[in-house]
Design a binder for these strands. Structure first.
Length: 121
RNA sequence: GAAGUCGGCCGGGCAAUCGCGCGAUAUUGUUAAAUAUCGGGAGGAAAGUCCGGGCUCCGCAGGGCAGGGUGCCAGAUAACGUCUGGGAGGCGUAAGCCUACGGCCAGUGCAGCAGAAAAUAUACCGCCUGCUUUGCAGGUAAGGGUGAAAUGGUGCGGUAAGAGCGCACCGCGCAACAGGUAACUGUUUGCGGCAGGGUAAACCCCACCCGGAGCAAGAUCAAAUAGGGGAACAUUGGCUUGGCCCGAGCUGUUCCCGGGUAGAUCGCUUGAGGCAUACGGUGACGUAUUGUCCAGAUGAAUGAUUGCCAUGGCUUCGGCCAUACAGAACCCGGCUUACAGGCCGACUUCCUCG
RNA sequence: UGGGCCGUCGCCAAGCGGUAAGGCAACGGGUUUUGAUCCCGUCAUGCGGAGGUUCGAAUCCUCCCGGCCCAG
């Protein structure tokens, strides 16, 4: 139904309960920049949640930048993703990397998760 | 031209594509919502949370003690620990800057080491006199030495040697007078030979100020669950909003029925708002008028990519690199701290030329 | 958002206006055939940072920096 690369509210995780469900039995994908947890979704669309802790990115500016980049990347790739709930977590080094590198890393994550989720289901 | 002082301002720009959340309007839809168009969408510090206020609740926000804060004077302000003007002291050639800057003649405390002596008196080396002369007694506080700090400085007189012992000038204290709203000031007058040290960011005293919590405050609608709610009576203990007391409420018993967690909505952005002009005031600021609406999220919007330009640096002249500090969360007034680079104005000193 | 606490040698810490204790560790020496134990000695000039008050500050005051805890 979403022919365009949009990012409305229903494509996000909104409640603590939804987050804890993902944390309980996730499929993991990690690299030095991000860890992404995935779990089969209950909605019609793939959904995204963000977990950027103050420990990993101390300044609010850095946290906002990381979140925006993750959302942007998710928005552009959600067409190819299965109906799954994702939670993206950042690492301590993430804040010091340029935007282009973060986009590249996330792209690899999405394609890897696509394979993993197919195997899972 | 160089060095410096003060004040104010900016904090990259334009375009294209793809988005996010808010408001208004329109259409669709039973609702939830969806789509389209238009409008606007981070800061000078949004930060630290160091002060002050609004707002909300604590029945009223009351009294006393305790505790905390402020501390030259006057003003500004909703208020302040902020700001403005003035005074005093200090620093600087100057422009200018800095200052917790009330009170140790209310009381209490503290001062290691050194030094004779550290706060109430005294005398180590000295100096002078006398004597029974390798010393003792008396006088003295000029000189030396110690220390952060030792009973005012210079000169003359005076004396056995000295000493405010006396005098002159300076300093200090008190009073009067004059100026100033006041702090305070003085080529003024008079009195006092000098009061007796330091420390109050030591306890403390004096003056003034402060009730407590915080928008996750609080209000409304309400799945689940039955833990409850209201009125009357009683008052030992317990609880409540600052630590205690007074005062107030709840808990207890009886009677009567409606209450409320998850979640949602409101609070939530029109305000001690901001811009412009005029007037008053040395100034902080105030008054009046015209016109204006300028972020409102909630796992948390305000973005990403590309191109061109701007600024700075490097350059093999093709280009390449860099562009700070930092992200609203109820809202304002300050303070403090961080900050690439740049702009404007006023002033000071020095050098050169005319 | 609000409130509270703490930064002292490599580690654990006492001291709270007048020379910064002590223990563990480390290093050197002694004892022992060797090692442990034990004994003696040494070490770091450092009180999170910057200002101020004071003759004198780890201590008092102000502002920053870092860490921890609590309420919701």
């Amino acid at each position: 139904m979403n022919t365009k690369a949009r990012f409305p509210r229903r494509a996000r995780l909104l409640k603590p309960a939804e987050y804890s469900r993902v944390f309980k039995k996730p499929v993991r994908s990690s690299d030095p920049l991000f860890t992404i947890l995935a779990s089969p979704g209950q909605s019609v669309d793939p959904r995204l949640g963000l977990a950027i802790s103050k420990k990993n990115a101390k300044r609010a500016v850095d946290r906002n930048r990381i979140k925006r980049i993750i959302r942007e990347s998710f928005r552009l790739h959600q067409q190819s993703l299965p109906v799954t709930d994702f939670v993206v977590m950042a690492k301590p080094v993430t804040k010091s990397r340029p935007n282009a590198e973060l986009f590249k890393s996330l792209e690899q994550h999405w394609s890897r998760l696509l394979k993993l989720c197919k195997k899972y289901s």
